[in-house]
Design a protein around this nucleic acid. Structure first.
Lengths: 229, 229
DNA sequence: GTAGAATATGACCTTGTGGTCATATGACCA
DNA sequence: TGGTCATATGACCACAAGGTCATATTCTAC
């Protein structure tokens, strides 16, 4: 399981981890630090997040911070791992048997779990979003090294299987739509969070179903009548 | 005309502008500075772009920089204005008479001009992209103040008119699809630039038409047969 | 009680930032 | 030649960043 794809790979122990000192801490102090850090990284990108602010919010000395973590990146990668583990819990039973359902059912579950996760953990979702948006920066590659394979490949496979089964038109550009569907996942979540509600409610299902209906049928009035060019 | 929407409003003189000293400069020196700055802002976000690097790349003294511009923001807003003016040139005749064409033709022109602009001015496009991705930061609001109305409202109007004419299903959520279409514009451009080519060629049209076909008809095998829920 | 290890601390270091300013340069005019 | 004014310059400033380290404190075991 990774942050953005939906396979079942078990996360391996990462190379960089908080020091023992951190795990020896009483739990409330550990969560205090984690919460301060989550708040910081939800508000600022990795580069712009400030260790000074984190220690100030945590009420610990700066020296202590570096007794717990090797550096800022160490803390960040640890949090990313925590978030990935939390997101794991949102994967529905349907997604665990992807071969037994059609692609629209699967996509529905994926989008659903994505929105639900974002609604219940807005800060986690915001951090995930900021990571995706940091494509090109060094930290992005480092995170993706721990979170492969990419979501794109996952969606490509999904589309290939769906075409074989006759659920999806065979003339689409698989690579392009894998890219679009993966990106639109983030888009729909953003839209939901920004414009509709902060919590998981009935409207959420409506939003997803509207979107899936669009994915399948488009927005054209006369389906099938219009062709490009 | 603004950076992301397609109305015909004429850009007003901005409050913050380079000083006279800058415009008194010989043209080659001015473009030298602009090119250095464009390169910097294409590589780094506004916050992370460095005046030190810009002056180093320009070969001018730091003091000189502040003889030309009030501050970093002054330079940046000036460049944004230049970019918007350049993008203006890509608006096709079709877009200048939006009432005489159906929505898919209009969208085709919009996406086309977007990709064409990005292909021919990758650095400008990258700067535009970075701006859109800086939602929430102070500089974003400042830019949008000069570039209203937002693209969302523009697409909402486009959809409303299309529904009235029977080109688009009347049961869609206009706000949601305005948001999606606006965002997907950026997505398609990103996909094209990242995976297909750097320059404007035949493949480009193909990409756009594939996407528009999807917009109208969806990716479902049997159009109209499947409904959500 | 005391030795010794683990942890807590904040002053301090280097580096880079946006921005300033006194001074130097050079062009134009009397 | 001397005076004036726009421009050019880089040393300098205050600040914040990530990170270090000698020292102080607390905990554990004998």
């Amino acid at each position: 399981m990774t942050l953005w794809s939906y396979d079942h790979k078990v996360t391996q122990q990462d190379f960089l981890m908080p020091k023992d000192t951190f795990f020896n801490l009483p739990e409330d102090k550990r969560t205090l630090i984690c919460n301060a850090a989550i708040g910081e990284f939800a508000e600022y990108s990795f580069d712009q997040a400030s260790v000074n602010r984190i220690v100030a919010k945590s009420g610990i000395a700066k020296g202590s911070f570096y007794q717990y973590f090797e550096n800022k990146k160490d803390l960040f990668l640890y949090l990313v791992q925590l978030i990935a583990e939390e997101k794991e819990k949102y994967i529905s039973p349907v997604m665990r048997n992807p071969d037994q359902h059609d692609i629209f059912t699967l996509l529905r579950e994926i989008y659903l779990s994505g929105i639900q996760f974002a609604a219940e953990h807005p800060q986690y979702a915001e951090i995930s979003r900021k990571i995706l948006e940091s494509k090109g920066k060094p930290i992005y590659a480092e995170i993706m090294a721990d979170n492969l394979p990419s979501a794109y490949v996952f969606f490509e496979t999904l589309l290939e299987n769906a075409i074989e089964r006759g659920e999806v038109r065979a003339d689409i550009d698989i690579k392009m739509f894998a890219y679009l569907i993966a990106s639109m996942n983030a888009l729909v979540i953003e839209y939901y969070i920004e414009y509709l509600a902060q919590k998981y409610d009935g409207k959420m299902m409506e939003t997803i179903d509207k979107f899936l209906d669009f994915l399948k049928n488009g927005i054209g009035e006369q389906s099938g009548g219009w062709t490009s060019k």
